[in-house]
Amino acid sequence: MGVVAAVFLIVITLFLPPLGVWAVAGCGADLFINICLTLLGYIPGHVHAFYIEYVYYDRREQAREGRYPAGPAPGVYSDRVQTGGRSYGTIVQPTR
Rank of each mutant, 00 (worst) to 15 (best):
Q62E: 14
G66F: 00
I35A: 09
F32H: 06
G20A: 08
E53V: 05
E53A: 03
S78D: 01
P17K: 02
A6R: 14
P44K: 03
V55P: 08
G28V: 11
Y57L: 10
F50C: 01
G75A: 08
V11T: 09
Q82L: 08
I35K: 07
T13R: 12
R60N: 13
I33E: 00
L19Y: 08
D30S: 10
A5I: 13
G84T: 05
G28D: 07
E65L: 15
G85Q: 10
A25M: 08
D79N: 10
V76A: 05
V55A: 02
D58G: 03
P69T: 00
Y77H: 14
G45E: 00
R59Q: 13
R80G: 07
I12L: 15
P94Y: 05
I33C: 03
T13K: 11
L19A: 15
A70R: 13
I12D: 05
P72C: 05
V47L: 15
S78P: 06
F15V: 15
L14N: 13
G26H: 13
D79Y: 05
D30N: 11
Y42I: 15
S78H: 08
R59W: 07
R64K: 15
V11P: 02
L40E: 02
G84E: 06
P69E: 01
A25C: 09
H48K: 02
H48L: 07
V47R: 11
G45R: 04
F50W: 12
V21M: 11
I35N: 03
V11K: 03
A29W: 06
L40G: 04
Y56G: 02
G41F: 12
